[in-house]
């Protein structure tokens, strides 16, 4: 009775919203987001600056211009370190060569990657040979996963001025 009187009495009337419709819509939105939610895996990336393609040259010719005047802006004219990766037919590494010197024969293992890392550290530490980019001569059938392991080692290196190596170019080698 008291309540009725209050309502009639005027301005302080209780206004109740019907929330059911809003809740309905909110649940629909929630259902949509739950159903479409697909957390993507956390990915990383290696940033590279790839110069324009150049014709294939044997390593002897690529290594020579180091002390000579540059002819252009491609890998052959710059101070380029050449790494040759021969591939076995199954996508694995068959052998590897840094510059003109053979590094190892056989597939990539953690130990061989350490050997490569040490070798590159030595090469980049040599004064008077300021390499500023790496040219990877890669066998046709080498799997991208294996190549990435080598790129990973290369991008970890620092040049003589302390900047990381990120200029890497690729050249395809014919199958052995």
């Amino acid at each position: 009775m008291r309540r009725k009187r209050k309502k009639r009495s005027g301005s302080q009337e209780e206004v109740t919203l019907n929330l059911a419709a809003m809740l309905d819509m909110a649940f629909q939105l929630l259902a949509f987001f739950i159903l479409t939610f697909k957390p993507s895996p956390v990915e990383g990336q290696i940033n590279l600056n790839l110069p324009p393609p150049r014709p294939i040259l044997p390593p002897e010719q690529i290594q020579k211009p180091e002390t000579e005047e540059p002819e252009g802006d491609g890998p052959a004219a710059a101070h380029t370190l050449t790494i040759t990766i021969n591939s076995a037919g199954n996508g694995q590494v068959a052998s590897m060569q840094v510059g003109l010197a053979k590094l190892f024969d056989g597939g990539l293992t953690a130990d061989r990657l350490r050997i490569l890392d040490r070798r590159l550290k030595d090469v980049f530490a040599i004064e008077g040979k300021p390499y500023d980019q790496v040219l990877l001569r890669v066998g046709k059938s080498l799997a991208y996963g294996e190549l990435m392991k080598i790129i990973d080692v290369c991008t970890k290196q620092k040049m003589s001025d302390g900047t990381p190596v990120n200029k890497i170019s690729f050249v395809e080698l014919p199958e052995n």
């Binding site: 990336q45 393609p53 591939s87 046709k140 059938s141 799997a143 991208y144 395809e172």
Partner: peptide, 27 residues
């Protein structure tokens, strides 16, 4: 990870010839 370099290189070379220079290799 199993893509042969030969096929990947075709795509990269095509990108380079179009003028793309900056690349990010995802892993």
């Amino acid at each position: 990870a199993g893509t042969p370099f030969e096929l990947l290189n075709k795509v990269l070379t095509e990108c380079q010839s179009e003028g793309f220079r900056k690349f990010a290799l995802r892993a």
